[in-house]
Simulated scan of single mutants.
Amino acid sequence: MNSKTVLHRDNPEAEPLGGNVKVTRDDWLNVARDVLVSDGVEQVKVMNLAAHMAVSRSSFYWYFKSRQELLDALLADWQATNTGALIRQAEAEAATITAAVCNVHRCVVNPALFNTALDFAIRDWARRSDKVRDLLDQSDAQRVDALTKMFCRYGYDELEAITRARVLYYMQIGYDLAQLNEPVAFRLRLLPHYLLTFTGIEARPDEIEEFSVYAQSFWE
Rank of each mutant, 00 (worst) to 15 (best):
L177W: 08
F151I: 11
L70V: 05
Y169A: 05
F186S: 08
S66W: 00
Y156G: 11
N115P: 08
G155H: 12
C152M: 15
V167E: 13
V55L: 04
I122C: 06
M171V: 05
R123E: 09
L86F: 06
G174C: 11
L75R: 09
N115R: 14
Y169G: 00
S66N: 05
C102R: 00
Q138P: 02
R153D: 14
F120H: 10
W125H: 08
L74F: 05
G174K: 10
D77V: 01
A178S: 15
R164V: 07
L159V: 13
A99Y: 00
L74P: 00
F151C: 08
D119A: 05
D134H: 14
Q89S: 12
D77A: 14
R57D: 11
S58T: 10
L180A: 08
N181T: 11
Y156R: 11
R133W: 04
S139K: 04
R57E: 13
P111L: 04
S129F: 01
Q179M: 10
P111N: 07
E182I: 15
D130M: 12
I87N: 04
R143G: 02
D157H: 12
A80Q: 15
Q79F: 03
A185S: 13
I122Y: 04
L118W: 14
R67P: 00
A178P: 00
P183C: 07
E69A: 06
E160Y: 03
R166H: 09
A85F: 01
P183Y: 08
A185P: 00
E93Q: 15
Y61D: 04
A100L: 05
A146P: 05
P111T: 01
F120P: 00
A99N: 11
D77N: 13
L86R: 14
A95T: 11
A126S: 15
A141V: 01
S139P: 02
D140H: 08
R123K: 07
A73V: 01
A100G: 06
F60V: 00
N181I: 10
N82S: 08
F114E: 03
R143M: 15
R67S: 05
L113W: 09
I87E: 03
D134W: 04
S56K: 11
I97C: 11
A185Q: 11
A95S: 12
R67T: 03
A112S: 10
D145S: 13
R127D: 14
A161V: 03
D72A: 03
R133F: 03
D176R: 12
R67I: 00
R166E: 13
V101E: 07
N82M: 06
S129T: 02
G155E: 10
Y175F: 13
C102I: 00
W62T: 05
L168F: 06
R123I: 10
A95V: 04
I173G: 03
V109D: 01
Q68H: 09
T83R: 15
L180H: 10
A117T: 04
T98L: 06
T98K: 01
R153K: 15
S58H: 11
G155V: 12
M171F: 15
E69V: 02
C152P: 00
D72F: 02
A165N: 01
L136I: 01
D72W: 02
C102A: 10
D176T: 07
T148S: 09
Q179F: 08
A95G: 09
D72M: 02
R164Y: 05
R88H: 11
A100E: 01
C102D: 01
A121M: 06
I162G: 01
S129G: 06
